[in-house]
């Protein structure tokens, strides 16, 4: 594969991310990875549900009193929107508009950072002000590991996308980096998929008790 092949919007292939064998491999590969991540999150999730509200005798913190919905709502909106912006980036990639790709990927990163900031704030609040630290109870351990694993995925996604933006800033789209952008965007959507379950099961159903 030649990095120097120059494309125009007219010669840019329809499925540029799958035009080369490496691209196909990356596409199938990221999906298989996501499949294994599904089981990973299922295990953490199921553990959280079975340890919810359980702690040492006389524990007074309950999910229904601990969780607030305002923060979760804002975080959900941020992450959902970042999913849309990365779709926009892929739309511009199809049209061979590199500036559009970089811009929308950049916005995705900013929204992701906003989400991450709020999550850290939330953890800080629970740990310091509510006395709900990591070692407080089985419930707290399971909560932090579940939401924290998702947060770790967000961090990895952010580093990945930022790396792509910086690395390719000066050279434009080609068949070598198109699959990378595409794979990172699929990964980012997957993070959103997990969050849909987290806000539904942890926060909304947590508040219900």
């Amino acid at each position: 594969m030649d990095l120097n092949t120059k494309f125009t919007p007219k010669s840019w292939p329809d499925h540029a991310e799958q035009a080369t064998l490496e691209g196909k491999n990356k596409f199938v590969g990221i999906w298989i990875f996501i499949c294994s991540d599904i089981v990973l999150f299922a295990s953490v999730f199921a553990t959280y549900l079975s340890l919810k509200d359980s702690g040492p005798a006389g524990m007074d913190i309950k999910a229904s009193e601990l969780f607030g919905l305002e923060l979760a709502f804002v975080m959900t909106m941020l992450l959902l929107t970042s999913s849309l912006t990365s779709v926009y980036a892929m739309y511009h990639m199809k049209n061979y508009n590199f500036k559009g790709v970089q811009l929308w990927m950049g916005i995705t990163v900013l929204l992701g950072l906003g989400f991450l900031g709020l999550e850290i704030y939330e953890f800080y609040e629970y740990t310091v002000h509510e006395g709900f630290g990591f070692t407080h109870s089985a419930f707290s351990s399971a909560f932090y590991v579940l939401v924290g694993t998702h947060g770790l995925h967000v961090i990895i996604g952010l580093v990945w996308i930022t790396g792509l933006i910086i690395r390719n800033a000066k050279r434009g789209l080609n068949l070598y980096n198109a699959p990378k952008y595409f794979a990172s965007s699929i990964y980012w959507h997957f993070i959103d998929v997990i969050w849909v379950f987290i806000f539904t099961v942890v926060y909304l159903m947590g508040v219900l008790g």
Binding site: F27, W31, I32, C35, I38, A46
Partner: peptide, 25 residues
Amino acid sequence: AVHIGFINTFVWMGALIAFTIFLAL
């Protein structure tokens, strides 16, 4: 998209296993 049928099979298989884990725990 390439091998999308294979990918679909895999994802739903993963979902099924995830569901089993939920049910059990």
